[in-house]
Design a protein around this nucleic acid. Sequence first.
DNA 1: CTGTTAGCGCTTTCAT
DNA 2: ATGAAAGCGCTAACAG
Lengths: 349, 349
Amino acid sequence: MTIGDVAKACSLAVSTVSNALSGKPYVRKETRRKVQEAADRLSYRPSAVAQALRTSRSSTIGVLVPDITNPVFSWMVRGIDDVLFREGRSLFVCSTEGREDKQIQYMHALIDRQVDGLILISQHTHGDDIEAILDNGPPFVLIHRRRRGHKEDYVGIDNDAGMRLAMNHLVELGHRRIAFIRGPTTSTSVEERFGAYRTVIAEARLAAEANLVFQGDYTIEGGMQAGKFLLEQVPRPTAILAANDFSALGVIEAAMRLGFRVPEDVSVIGYDDIFIARMPQVQLTTVYQPKRDIGGAAATQLLRRIGALRRGRPKEVIFPVELHVRATTAPAYSGSRVGPWEQDEVLVP
Amino acid sequence: MTIGDVAKACSLAVSTVSNALSGKPYVRKETRRKVQEAADRLSYRPSAVAQALRTSRSSTIGVLVPDITNPVFSWMVRGIDDVLFREGRSLFVCSTEGREDKQIQYMHALIDRQVDGLILISQHTHGDDIEAILDNGPPFVLIHRRRRGHKEDYVGIDNDAGMRLAMNHLVELGHRRIAFIRGPTTSTSVEERFGAYRTVIAEARLAAEANLVFQGDYTIEGGMQAGKFLLEQVPRPTAILAANDFSALGVIEAAMRLGFRVPEDVSVIGYDDIFIARMPQVQLTTVYQPKRDIGGAAATQLLRRIGALRRGRPKEVIFPVELHVRATTAPAYSGSRVGPWEQDEVLVP
DNA sequence: CTGTTAGCGCTTTCAT
DNA sequence: ATGAAAGCGCTAACAG
């Protein structure tokens, strides 16, 4: 079924059929009807591949995520899909596992397929290969990881405020030895969060020791290792702040295995507020970020960039965060408080 | 950067460049080297779109999932990606939310883009539109939902055995009033699970009442509604079996809100064994299925189908299941047993 | 072994 | 308002 078949079926030129189908204004009403009818009857569908070759636009978007099985990212993808589906666009979703080689290979594959744009969620933004691709490829929007020294479209959250909220909460509960589990790589987001941690440590004159910082990998398993390491320190931290919820969940698991109670023996705070955090059995105190909205905002901005303002000035969207206080934080050495879970106590900056 | 530029750069015909780059055996070694060198220097990459138009193969695969934020499906996608990435193929992942219209729209979009094959995870397989697409489209592999009356490539699990394992476990614990939360639509998997439930009910002469079956939608929220409904029945079921883990998690949340203890007041069993189920705070007894392997098997079979044996006879892969007994099941009216979580007790058929 | 040529299915001038 | 023709970038006959 090609456009030629339709043309034949209604004895018109292919160009006329093309014009009719793509809604050109100067096609006679009667002709358009005839074409439409024939196309429907033959259940003709234009080849998106041929269209892409001809127009060098594919109505396709590429999305790179570090790990599709992590709810943070799958909810962002959902937000992207929300807005792109309405526009009749399709998504290539690629899970890079944080590996730079895989990211590069996928970026090439996507661009070879003429994607109209790219959304990079927490991906590598530096290195010759990646920068070359970015600079010569289609429009893109970055989520949660900027490229240093570049002003480009970016969607993220107020990492600093989120960390301060979390830290202040702990300080108010009397914690002085607060450990931190950072992310796996040096990225702008990780730096912002880590920076805020250190700032508050300094400001509030809290314990500042190298052994109070551990590098995780954003997985539950990594969080367990981190938790084991941190909880075996002497003296032991009374609170552990994790750079994401998976790490925090791992810490809690490690704590339980080691016989510590959360929050009586150690307070734990996560970051992201994935749905697991609000389960009644879990009730993880964590910093909330609007994952679905973040995805939606990135998609909207990308659409804008693909369309009219290809060369507008870059736009940064920074979403505010909230601290959702649940049941994994309590006064230092309290042995008491268990938070309510009927309703979160929400702290905003 | 087109193949023409490369040809010019090394004063050869485009066809020779094409042959050299695609590894045709009859290209002179020296020529191949020269071409390769020029291509590298110009950092030439062939247009996948042009290749697809010409060869009508795109080295892309379309994957349809009901909900990308559900770990069951994202882990299957991961398994698919494991095997497809190695082959240099890209994945279109589409989240259909169980909506038939969205599924149809995505299937069309995918086929318009010349995907070489489709993997349908728990998708609609009936209805004129969908059957027409299936019958005229590219090769496909079905996961967890067959098309009735057709022998086609299928990857699934032994639903019947899983349900029997779960039911027998409950019967052995002395439960006689066992409720069931079924899936949202009538699909072969749902029917298999529901069928096994009813069979055991009959075989063991357990309570068989319409109000002991509730239709969920595979979400936590749906599970909560189901749990609320079921736990308000008089007499109350002593155990609730859910068709998936999300539903079971919702039941537990509902139970807690209503003041029931799990498993003392009511036992709960899930299905899938998502990673949440094994968290120490959750310890959900559930039927395990190898999600990643299932995805991998589907991808492997699709590759086979795309390659040599386009017309081989259909292959069905049925993975065995295991019951992972954790802490949400206990003897009826026991008020006692709390399962161990250091090590699952694994029951196999 | 290398080059010439004919499309793949579509859109887009440019004539008519 | 419609049609003829060129060409997007590539591969596969086929000729040499």
